[in-house]
């Protein structure tokens, strides 16, 4: 079994677009984007792959600041950005397709930003 070596570089949100553009110029494929809540901050990860070489960049944000959208560089990024918007409430500036919170319609607004669980009590009447 071979385990992949993975490198995560933490960058400033300011340098995000430039860095992503670099990856695109190298011919990388956007593997995924996702967000993790750590304490009060949010880590946003951007993963790229070329010839099975995986690299990841991370920005750290407070969840309120608007993040520039990378959908101008990778067209397909809109799906991840809308997902993060719906689940974590992170706002992206300049998305090519903006579902305005309707991609994943959830019972609770931004459920992943403040996770809660249903109790064991019987469900309320519908």
């Amino acid at each position: 079994m071979t385990q992949e070596d993975q490198q995560t570089t933490i960058i400033e949100p300011l340098h995000l677009l430039g860095k992503v553009e670099e990856f695109r110029k190298k011919g990388c494929r956007l593997v995924q984007m996702h967000c993790t809540k750590v304490g009060d901050t949010f880590e946003i990860n951007y993963s790229f792959d070329i010839n099975y070489e995986f690299s990841n960049i991370r920005i750290i944000t407070d969840g309120k600041t608007e993040i520039p959208s990378i959908s101008g560089i990778y067209w397909g990024a809109f799906i991840y950005e809308n997902e993060m918007h719906d689940l974590f409430g992170i706002r992206f500036a300049g998305m090519n397709i903006d579902f305005s919170g309707n991609l994943i319609r959830t019972a609770k607004k931004n459920p992943f930003a403040d996770p809660s669980f249903r109790g064991e009590k019987p469900c309320p009447d519908a």
Partner: peptide
């Protein structure tokens, strides 16, 4: 064509903390 999903969303990733 614009997809919208959410009919099967359960939020199972949050269960990881439980």
């Amino acid at each position: 064509a614009l997809p919208s999903i959410g009919y099967i969303h359960r939020g199972l990733e949050t269960l990881v903390t439980k």
